[in-house]
Amino acid sequence: MSVQRLWTRGAIYLVLVAFALYYAMPIYVLIITGLKPYKDVSMLRMWELPQGLYFDSFTTAWGLVSPNFRTSVMITIPAALISSMIGSINGYVFAKWRFRGADTLFILFLVGMFLPYQGILIPLVLTLQKLSLYGTLAGLILTHCIFGIPITALLFRGYYASIPNELMDAGKIDGCGFFGLYRHILLPISMPAFAVVLLWQFTTIWNDYLIGLVVLSNPVQAPVMVAVKNTAGSFSVDWNVQMSAALIAAAPTVIVYLLLGKLFMRGLLAGALKG
């Protein structure tokens, strides 16, 4: 039995390591390409380690993307926080206050997730102009919050639906109303859900390219992903610089994941869920 167990464990680790390689392989290419000087970058020699370490491309890339990096921070943090809060309260309503037609409304919200952004750029710009929000950070934050309504509602609704109604009933008996139940019962145990939703929204908004570009009306003030792409010329690409820029641009989402990731996993085990 224990021999069989040993084999099973071994097999499990083998599979995990294989997948670790699968996930790491493109990242490896990204990093070593960023460390090569321009003339050594070639598709045909992509696996070869650089001959020495060249951080020039990172310096160059940082010089190119840093202003837009700042813009992205200023958009992403408020947009992710606000849209998570909206999602939380919407998810609460959809999960626990199913007024007549709420489920249909929820499905109608979900359809919005499939909206192709490439096709709605012109109405979006015209609408924001009418609201005097075109070309402003506020306008872009609003846009991200609105387009985030469906996904955040979906994720929070799923989480709140798993919370036993007995808890709600107990709160009811203690005299809590609509906001009281949310404030005292659900919000304190919502952190895992917030982690999931924040991670999603942060990544989506940070990686957004098109909406930020068009709503802010000018590549100069556009989000960092536009700057990453702008490290390329029209007939040739400095791959080392672009890869470095891509890594710099990916850094915040990676940091956020590292910080929230544990919370995201650990959170579901903790607290009132079991109890």
């Binding site: 940082w62 010089g63 840093s66 202003p67 837009n68 990096f69 700042r70 813009t71 921070v73 200023m74 943090i77 070309g135 402003t136 950070l137 304190p188 145990i189 952190m191 917030f194 982690a195 924040l198 802010l216 100069v220 003030q221 850094a251 915040p252 940091i255 956020v256 910080l259 929230l260 919370l263 959170g267 903790a270 607290g271």
Partner: peptide
């Protein structure tokens, strides 16, 4: 748990601000 989580969130915010402050170029506000 949730207090720690909030601290963590704050931590994220601070990290971002610091990173942003490191940007060499002038502030490209909208």
């Amino acid at each position: 748990m949730s207090r720690r989580s909030f601290l963590r969130l704050l931590g994220v915010g601070t990290t971002m601000t610091v990173l942003a402050a490191c940007a060499p170029a002038a502030a490209p506000a909208a």
